[in-house]
């Protein structure tokens, strides 16, 4: 009666935690590798994809890759503690394990945008998934034109990757601007929502591809502004976030119209987003 070979798409692989970095009071970055050496050697992902991470007995949740796809045999996820799974992850220590399924989902265009000016607009915990694209792009810096990163957070303390941000600031070959909603005493940079940074940069709209990731409300305003500036709809690339369970297009939770964010996304151009029946 047919071939009874069984591949369980819901069964995670074990991954061990190599390192944990505290990013903010509620956000940590986990560096992981798959416990099975052979699997780990074969493990490849692309910028913009995500994994489903499990704490056994608590549950599973999706997280975007936050590291360079080309850095070997390890990967990062940056996790903000908001609920059951994420809080359970936050009490783990290096050497502990997680369940991992992935890589899942589609990815950001990279080779397709060489030769273009690049604009990133990130909000809060939206930076990590973009970092998985920024890193490999900066490795190939010469292949791109102007390179701008705009980052907004609620407070200075809520910014992730603070040492890296400093590095970006110091690099001469990219423009990095940051802003916060509520500054503290030491803050010398911009204040205001991330879209206020648009006035501070000079863009060649026709040559630029914009990538954005962040809270839904921020994304909405960013896209509005980009359109007003004259960006073509397919030059605005965004991620969509939905409540996800299975990550493999079966559970139905992430569906928008007939698209499943977990397999058809999470990366979409605004032209695609616009066509979705529910927005």
């Amino acid at each position: 009666m047919g071939n009874l070979r069984m591949e369980n798409i819901y069964l995670p692989d074990l991954a061990l935690i190599d390192r944990i970095v505290d990013e903010t009071s509620d956000t940590k970055t986990f560096t992981l590798h798959l416990a099975d050496a052979a699997k780990n050697r074969r493990f490849r992902f692309k910028s913009g994809q995500f994994v489903e991470a499990t704490v056994f007995g608590v549950g599973e949740a999706p997280f975007g890759f936050a590291s360079n796809p080309h850095s070997p045999r390890q990967f990062d996820i940056t996790v903000r503690a908001v609920g059951a799974v994420t809080h359970a992850m936050h009490v783990l220590k290096p050497g502990d394990y997680l369940g991992i399924r992935g890589p899942l989902g589609n990815n950001f265009p990279l080779d397709e945008v060489t030769g273009q000016d690049i604009l990133f607009i990130a909000g809060g915990i939206g930076l990590p998934p973009l970092k998985s694209l920024i890193d490999p792009m900066l490795d190939r810096r010469a292949e791109f034109g102007q390179f701008i990163i705009l980052y907004g957070a609620r407070t200075p303390a809520d910014r992730v990757y603070k040492p890296l941000l400093q590095e970006w600031r110091n690099r001469g070959d990219i423009q990095f601007l940051q802003t916060v909603d509520t500054p503290d005493a030491e803050w010398k940079d911009h204040v205001g929502v991330v879209t206020t940074l648009f006035e501070k940069v000079k863009l060649d709209i026709k040559r630029t591809v914009a990538f954005t990731c962040g809270p839904p409300i921020m994304i909405r305003f960013v896209i509005q502004d980009l359109l007003t500036m004259g960006f073509a709809e397919d030059r605005i690339i965004s991620t969509l976030e939905r409540y996800m369970k299975c990550g493999v297009g079966k559970c139905g939770h992430c569906a928008i119209g007939h698209k499943y964010i977990c397999v058809d996304g999470p990366v979409f151009s605004y032209r695609q987003i616009k066509r979705l029946p529910e927005r």
């Binding site: 819901y10 499990t54 549950g59 369970k245 299975c246 079966k250 559970c251 139905g252």
Partner: peptide, 25 residues
Amino acid sequence: SCFDVFDCTEGETGQGTRYRCWDSC
């Protein structure tokens, strides 16, 4: 066919099961 997923553990044994159950949009 939409479903949700949840874990069920047996006491403090560290043993458990991940289930799916029908969900509704």
